[in-house]
Nucleic acid binder design. Sequence first.
DNA 1: ATTATTTACGCAAACGTTTGCTTATTTGTT
DNA 2: AACAAATAAGCAAACGTTTGCGTAAATAAT
Lengths: 345, 345
Amino acid sequence: MPGTRVTIKDLAKRMDLSVSTISRALHNHPSIGKKTTAEVWKLAKQLGYFPNTVASNLRRRKTNMIGVIVPRIDIAFHSHVISGVEEVAYKMGYNVTIYQSRDSFEREVAITGILQTQMVAGIIACLALETIDCSHFARFNSLKVPLVFYDRVSNDLEASKVIIDDFEAASRVTQHLINIGCMRIAHIAGCQTTSIFSARLEGYKAALLKNGLTFDPNLVCCANDLSYEEGARCAKKLLKLSEIPDGIFCANDYTAIGAIQVIKKTNLKIPDDIAIAGFSNYPVSTIIEPALTTIDDRAVEMGKTAARMLIRQIEDRDTNIASETIVIKTDLIIRDSTRREPVNA
Amino acid sequence: MPGTRVTIKDLAKRMDLSVSTISRALHNHPSIGKKTTAEVWKLAKQLGYFPNTVASNLRRRKTNMIGVIVPRIDIAFHSHVISGVEEVAYKMGYNVTIYQSRDSFEREVAITGILQTQMVAGIIACLALETIDCSHFARFNSLKVPLVFYDRVSNDLEASKVIIDDFEAASRVTQHLINIGCMRIAHIAGCQTTSIFSARLEGYKAALLKNGLTFDPNLVCCANDLSYEEGARCAKKLLKLSEIPDGIFCANDYTAIGAIQVIKKTNLKIPDDIAIAGFSNYPVSTIIEPALTTIDDRAVEMGKTAARMLIRQIEDRDTNIASETIVIKTDLIIRDSTRREPVNA
DNA sequence: ATTATTTACGCAAACGTTTGCTTATTTGTT
DNA sequence: AACAAATAAGCAAACGTTTGCGTAAATAAT
């Protein structure tokens, strides 16, 4: 940091003006003469002056830093969200600082503490899988630091949210499986304490009922961590049933791919014997064969939306920050894993 | 930010002590009595005091912020690097702020300007594809802000680097292809103005020559952006040659997968007619069929190493920051795309 | 020519910490 | 009992900005 940076004081001395005049000139404040302003700018360039944001932040009592808490940054969904956040933040003059909770509650709590001392202007967060109690986020309410959750959100905390309609999307996928003729649809589910995963299960159930199919708990297999391996494990379990399913809706693409890989080792054909659908439209879903039908969760769009909401709240702090929830529209992407020859159903 | 945070001054007033005593107590400074220190801590907890990092940074004239510039955060390689960076930064008490150059030179320049005003303690960067002139990084040298490049580095700038030995890795992959019996090996290359990609080409050439194979420029096809599509385009081109190759070494996994998809649509068999190898060990490389032989570029390890180097430089600023280059060991991961029945070669 | 208004700038106090130096008090040494 | 040394705490300046208020000179209005 040292290396004798040039400050506003230096400019003031050199020009025989007061620091306030320099400061105002550099902000193009109208109360400073055109000519002076121009000269200040010129000297600033010449001397290589650049503002010290830290000092400015202290004096203004606000930073332009947005804190982002993600479970893990190396998961495609979250890195896409961050990409969206960064993009709009950059355009709006905000900086983005990133923390990984690694799905640990303890770490998430620690991070909220850090963000507090860092005086971030606002926070975007996706809850850790372990998190049930969200009281560590409550402090931001009293500090009037805007907070936007995305994807995995808390219902017992007043905060803005950007989510997808997991219920509706799951229901839509299930309906699609039904439409192509599946009668016995299984679900590889995510951790049911997490709202998005329970919503996906409910959406699945709802679609079944709506179509007069009975919900069979044996057809629901709960994956622990939504990995390939868990998908494979669940698929094996489902294939051991006396009556195997003819369609599987998986809570995410990884488990779907794990399932596909297991099924391909049997002599069952996808999609004809078993159709498979995933959730999230990860890049791999176009690579696996057959290509995977899935829900595009619009991760980048979610990030952009969260950032826009947050910045708006940051900037009109006066108005009552009525918490706001935005639901991002998802798309059902149909690929070969559910593309059957037309069936008369 | 407002909402009347409690400051050190408030504690001082309440305890009838001076602010300096409070400050020292909170840092467990030995010159403050055990008893006083304990009381200060107690009151601090009770009143919900937390330090204002911004003020501290200003006074100490240093931040604990590490700025990271990546081309794009949603590329698996970079998000893994960031994950590694974040992990060690977190442990060492540093924060990480992220910027995407989106491979744009202009944007990269702008970001270096922002980082300068943000007074970051150090910088980790991967050059944008467009970047040739690196003089915008030179300012950090004079400001004595440590700088570590990773992966895509600049040779005409004094800075530390963490890289993989692309030449050696490429050569090793090519040797592997030769070992399994390939005689006519093609290369789908990356942009040759980028050092890592030209090193991969050179490593490929070197292995050919070492084994007495002639280098045929017709077997090298340059991809523009290392996407699936470009891989597919190059593969098609190679398949139109009068003598088609019996092995392809691709500059990354995406192009390799594009190539595999094209080849699978012909009646050529992988790996028997054409063996394919990629580079980077992206997650998809285990999903594609056949699974892709590739180089594990140890992205997370790179991030961790870069962060460790940087923090060491930040913390012993006194010693002459002799620039340092670390080469991360890579692994050749052999999978089905090059796994032939034993051949007597 | 006198007053009112605008224009252009300076003063000085903040923002919340940290830290070199000084001072008062206690403890230890002869 | 007198003095040195250790202990515990305070003073005040700094870090580099921003900003409310004040003021002098220049311009406009009467």
